[in-house]
Structure formats: structure tokens, C-alpha cells
């Protein structure tokens, strides 16, 4: 799995951090920062959930 985040599209809602704290963070302006590009196991499930919960469409993943 590889996660892609488009920081220009991100609106800083923070849903991804709440869904997958080990995988995503926010910078000081709330814009997404990917901590783990290729999460595994539980973190991979959480990352899939995070991508589904992203309101802006900034997140995508390649399985």
C-alpha cells in the first residue's frame, strides 16, 4: 500500500488524524502530513478508513 496526499487539495479537516494517528499528522496550518507512506497491518486498515473519511479528496492510495 502506498498513500498519496495532495496538500493543495487538503482543507485541514483533521479526519485522517482521528482515523489513523500513526499514519497522518497535520502541520501548523492543519494541512495533512503523511507520517507513514506504506503502513501495514492495523495501520493499513486505519489508513483505508482515513482515506474514506477525507472530505476534500486529498487522500488516495495504491494497494
Amino acid at each position: 500500500m502506498k498513500i498519496k496526499a495532495d496538500r493543495d487539495v487538503c482543507i485541514g479537516a483533521g479526519n485522517c488524524v482521528l482515523a489513523a494517528e500513526n499514519v497522518f499528522d497535520q502541520d501548523d496550518d492543519a494541512i495533512v502530513v503523511v507520517l507513514e507512506e506504506s503502513p501495514e497491518g492495523k495501520d493499513a486498515d486505519a489508513a483505508r478508513n482515513a482515506v474514506g473519511s477525507c472530505p476534500s479528496g486529498a487522500l488516495s492510495l495504491e494497494e
Binding site: 482543507i11 485541514g12 483533521g14 488524524v17 482521528l18 497535520q26 501548523d28 496550518d29 492543519a30 494541512i31
Partner: peptide, 8 residues
């Protein structure tokens, strides 16, 4: 405004 509402 978003920086005021980060999860942190």
C-alpha cells in the same frame, strides 16, 4: 483559520 482547529 484551519491552524486554530488542528487535532493537536
Amino acid at each position: 483559520l484551519t491552524g486554530e482547529f488542528t487535532v493537536k
